[in-house]
Nucleic acid binder design. Sequence first.
DNA 1: CTGAAAGCGCTTACAG
DNA 2: CTGAAAGCGCTTACAG
Lengths: 338, 338
Amino acid sequence: MRVTIADVARAAGVSKSTVSRVLNAKDEVDAGTAERVRAVIARLGYVPSSRAVELARGRGRTVGVLASSLSWPWTAEVVQGALDTVEAAGYGLLLFTRNHGPRSMARFAGQISAAAFDGLLVVGPQDALDPVAAALRPDLPVVLVDDRTDRPRFPSVTVANTLGGELAARHLLALGRRTPLVVTGPPHFGSVRGRLAGFLGALEAHGVEHDPRRTVEGDFTERSGEEAVEKLLADGITPDAVFAHNDLCAAGALRALRTAGLRVPGDVAVVGFDDIPLAAYTDPPLTTVRQPLRAMGEAAAALLLARVNGGPPPAGPVVLPAELVVRGSAPVPLTRTP
Amino acid sequence: MRVTIADVARAAGVSKSTVSRVLNAKDEVDAGTAERVRAVIARLGYVPSSRAVELARGRGRTVGVLASSLSWPWTAEVVQGALDTVEAAGYGLLLFTRNHGPRSMARFAGQISAAAFDGLLVVGPQDALDPVAAALRPDLPVVLVDDRTDRPRFPSVTVANTLGGELAARHLLALGRRTPLVVTGPPHFGSVRGRLAGFLGALEAHGVEHDPRRTVEGDFTERSGEEAVEKLLADGITPDAVFAHNDLCAAGALRALRTAGLRVPGDVAVVGFDDIPLAAYTDPPLTTVRQPLRAMGEAAAALLLARVNGGPPPAGPVVLPAELVVRGSAPVPLTRTP
DNA sequence: CTGAAAGCGCTTACAG
DNA sequence: CTGAAAGCGCTTACAG
């Protein structure tokens, strides 16, 4: 049925060893023989069985990707970037998500133990690995994208969160805003702490004092953005700006502000984080700190492949630049002649 | 290094055959023996090597998914649905995208021939398979999601496009609109023809004549939605509604209408198709025909798994219901007392 | 109910 | 430069 290496060997009048050598481009094969074998391979349309090759070699050409739901555009974009790099290297990408509870994680752990892949990319917080910690072989290369913990146990790729916070603050300061509301993500995320530190640091550098009541903890959901605004207003504080730690949350803030009768950006300027597609569609469109998601996925995959092939771990996290994308919710400041 | 079936056999004092039987839950094993073997397996933390199992069985537990870019939310959502089902069945999902030209497709063809997966899900048009047609073994089960061709060569899962077109038309008619602009997708897509036929059919059923100049061909991009509106206005025709064949295109139409100084929905009501996340964020939010993307991915994966396991092909395409989601761009009509 | 042997389709020392 | 043999880690008839 299937054409095997034995068929090729027979048809070419050589041994399986020789066919294998031709296949793997070993240089010790006679040019004429190699040519003949290649012709037979082409004629028979022979393709090696990946499973047999991997079993024999004891190593495969597959990387696993563990991600939160692809419904999150953030995730999908990073995975796409990783896939580009993985495919270009001739590797396969086995995809797993972790939104299906313990049964799903048990199966995933099984795949790890079964050596179904040769390296693992985790898109999201590293504690996603906790349920499968026992299965994690120490020799399995792991790379994290957007580690959200302080001291990641693995090499990681992340955006410059502190810089991102700074960019947001400086832009709002240039717009003359002095009393911003900051809606953070969960505070145990390293990225959240970075964004907050960068933002507050820039305020301080400008001599602007920040009332701690204007820092409200959110959870990256749209609803949490709404609630943060509602709560602050209920406390009798009206901010002149909002810096939300992601775009979804910023969209929620936008909604709550409008409901409260406040104009954006007139009364309140709003800056988000991520630049997911819908950021360009909110009303008004969202000024936001852009994460180079695709590039982050690519960089992480490249790092992982290097490790899979025996490369050394990088010295520290790979940090990609953040960039401010200016749209209507916090527009370009009017130039003032000093 | 790795714990193998031989290690388990030795430790349990049985043969590899017996261990294998226990592993595969064959009933011919003595209960006591089975128990003992299981204990050893647990103690040693043994997990079968997927590669070896698959090689020996001549069949694996992996399905391939060929999709356009995950950057398209449409795609990501369908893939997520498929992944849910695939994971639940204990299969792995090998992901491929087709935005990398011939080299990428050549590698993909190689994976097909190498039997790297046991079934293939194509998310998107079936002509995505043309470049790898030669590699497609006739015994490889293939399922299509959202076939966009008339007579798909494979089982497929699709939304009720004609119904969707009808829903859009009936809603606009209820709003009193009589001169809609239709911005289609590429006309060789079956889905496009379905949406158009449903829409025009409903108009006709209501005795509303449709000027063919008000049907403009787009290509599913935002820009094409803008252009369609611009072109029509330039021709001196002002529609009282727009039905765009996808949400991106509808967002473009929204933009062009606003630029032209037309109010939505006051002057022009707008209906899209898909209900991707940003549909809820446009200004005004988009009324649209919802595709059950997740469910489509799930259904397609279930179909594929059934086929992989020897099930018969379905009689015809699996058609999932479309649903109208009403938002600001084409709101609920005022009730009139007749 | 259980084991020995062959086989899945490759790769890789080891000889020559 | 090339081949025979062993091995990768399983499954599956075939005997018993």
